[in-house]
Each structure stands twice: as C-alpha cells, then as structure tokens.
Design a protein around this nucleic acid. Structure first.
Length: 329
DNA sequence: TAGACGTGGCA
DNA sequence: TTGCCAAGTCT
C-alpha cells in the first residue's frame, strides 16, 4: 500500500492538471463541486491518514488502553470546549469514575461539581444520565451501535458517530465543526461551512468515507485532527497541509467568507452569565446555600430570579425549604 | 430552525 | 479591548 502511493500521487497530479487546463470537463457543469474519482479519493485518504500518523496529538482518550467510556466522557467534555481545558478534568473523572456504573452511583450534583468550569454544565447532568442508562439498560457497557448511542441523553448525531467510530472502530460519517471546515475548503472552496449542517455536507462526507471499516475510523479521526491543527478557523497553516495542493479553496485564491455572518455569541449581561455565577457559588459550597448569598452574585433581581428558576427547571439546582439551594442530590 | 446554553484564550 | 472561536445538543 505504501508502494503504489507514489504512483497514485503522480496520477493525481496529472489528472488535476488535465482538469485545470480543460475548461469543458464532464462534471464541470454540475451544481456542486465535481466528485473526485476513486483514485483521487484513495490518494486523499492516504495523504490525510499518513499525516495523522505523524502528527496526531497524544491524547489520553486515544491511548491504546483507553476504553469506550473514556472516549465517551471526552466527547461530552469536548462539545464546545477546547482540548486543553478538557484534559485535566477528563483525567479526574476517569480516575474517580472508571466505569459508567461508578458515575451512576453518584448524585447528579457531584457530576455537576466535578464538571468544574468546563461550561455548559447541563452536559454533566446528561453524562450522568447517560451513565445511569448504560448501567441500567446496557449492562454497564457503553453501547456500540449508533442508534443505541443516539438514544442516550446528551448524545446527538455527532457524538454517537464519534463514539462508535473512535471507541469501536465502526464506519460512520463523523461530521464535527473541524471536519465540516476541512471539507468546505477542500471540496467546496469556501472559507467556512454553512451555519447549520446541510444535506450536501452529509453527502460530501459520505462520498469521501473509506469503504473499509478500520480505514473509515482512521479517516474520521484524521480529518478532525487536520481541522483542529492545520485547517484552523482563523489562521490556517496551509504550508503544513498534506492536501493543500488539491484544496479547492486554495486553488480559488483563498477567497474571504462571503455568506451570512457567522453566528456570534454574546455573553456579558445575559442569563447565561448569571446562571454561571449562581452555579459557581453552589459548586464551591458543600452545604446548602441561602438565597441571600445567591442574591449577591447579580444586582438585577428579575434577571437573577429568572436565571435561578431556569437552573432549577433544568435540574442543575435543587431548592430546599427555608430558602436554601444546593446542587441536586 | 433559530436560539439558548458557560467559559476562557487568543488575535 | 472586543470579538471570534472551541470534538454540539436540545427544544
């Protein structure tokens, strides 16, 4: 397989220069980008996977002895939170709760407390609920089927595919923000993917997915890593990219983003900020906290009450008698 | 389907 | 300093 890579590379360059110098290619009139031939796709797989073999970060949930539970915990924590901040918390969780059943035996409040400042603490609640479901319905083993994973709390399309692929080596389209950006540039020639995942993106990703199961799983991890380390959102390192020569965005002159504005997230002054402050106080206290203490975190009483009510409604906070509050028991 | 949902680092 | 961005899910 290593031997004919050189040959494929030559063929690829040839076919690309032919395509570039021949305006009336057969697929040029189609609405989407032309689908690369099987040789070109196989070449792409080799280039990206070889790059991954050389450059993959040494992350604990990728270790050979990392189990599916380690992968699953990492996937929950990595939802919208950078790797560097996940690393220490993931280590603590796996040491404290090495199996789903261990977490399931704890109170949900302990999960929220141990979540620390990772953000989006509902994820802690959902991970705890997922662990409970795994203990009750799956004999304590993280399920390996995509639909079983998808049925777990907090597991959506991406996480189900990621766990099945990374933990069990299954073949799934793993479409996260990194992969979507890589394909937007490489295939579609745009600086960024659309705001919401489209059917066209799923089609593209499905068409590029290696047929072989083990290779598909490798490809999923490799494209994500490429997006995270090289094909970055703000300053892509195209000089280090293994597929820069065939990147549609590069070939088009790296045009700036021209679509609708990328969704910004305001934070200061929002309910989210108030919720964050309230929960920080509750996490720090092993005893129930009086309402008066919570009142100190935010000046505006209406918003403060709304935020606290929201936390209670979400199950992140438990109201007790006498105006006391605590993390859920 | 658009908006809610935390937090911190970097340009 | 401000705004963007980080392995999404749920409603």
């Amino acid at each position: 397989m290593c031997e004919d890579r050189k040959d494929m590379s030559t063929d690829l360059r040839d076919s690309r220069s032919r395509a570039a110098s021949t305006p009336s290619g057969p697929s040029a009139a189609a609405a989407g980008p032309p689908a690369p031939g099987p040789r070109a796709v196989a070449e792409l797989h080799d280039l990206v996977i070889d790059w991954f073999d050389e450059n993959a970060r040494d992350l604990p949930w990728r270790a050979p002895d990392a189990g599916a539970w380690s992968v699953m915990v990492s996937e929950f924590m990595l939802q919208q939170t950078p790797v560097s901040r996940v690393l220490p918390v993931h280590q603590e969780w796996l040491a404290r709760w090495p199996r789903p059943a261990d977490l399931a035996q704890e109170s949900p409040g302990e999960a929220v407390r141990a979540w620390g400042r990772l953000g989006y603490p509902r994820r802690a609640l959902r991970l705890h609920a997922a662990a409970t479901a795994i203990a009750q319905r799956h004999g304590g083993e993280v399920p390996r089927e995509h639909d079983e994973l998808l049925a777990l709390p907090g597991v959506g399309e991406y996480t189900a595919a990621a766990v099945a692929s990374f933990a069990y080596g299954r073949r799934h389209v793993v479409l996260d923000t990194n992969v979507r950006r890589v394909f937007a540039r490489l295939v579609s020639g745009t600086a960024y993917p659309p705001n919401a995942t489209t059917a066209a993106e799923r089609r593209t990703a499905g068409g590029l997915l290696p047929a072989d199961e083990a290779t598909a799983a490798r490809w999923a991890a490799a494209t994500m890593e490429l997006g995270a380390l090289v094909c970055a959102a703000r300053s892509p390192a195209c000089g280090s990219c293994p597929v820069a020569a065939r990147c549609a965005w590069r070939l088009a002159g790296s045009p700036a983003h021209d679509g609708p504005p990328r969704r910004g997230q305001t934070y200061a002054g929002t309910d989210r900020q108030v919720r964050g402050r309230l929960l920080a106080v509750l996490r720090a206290s092993s005893d129930p906290v009086p309402q008066a203490v919570l009142d100190g975190v935010w000046h505006e009483p209406v918003q403060r009450a709304r935020a606290l009510d929201g936390l209670v409604a979400d199950g992140l906070v438990e109201p007790l008698a006498d105006g006391l509050y605590r993390l859920p028991a």
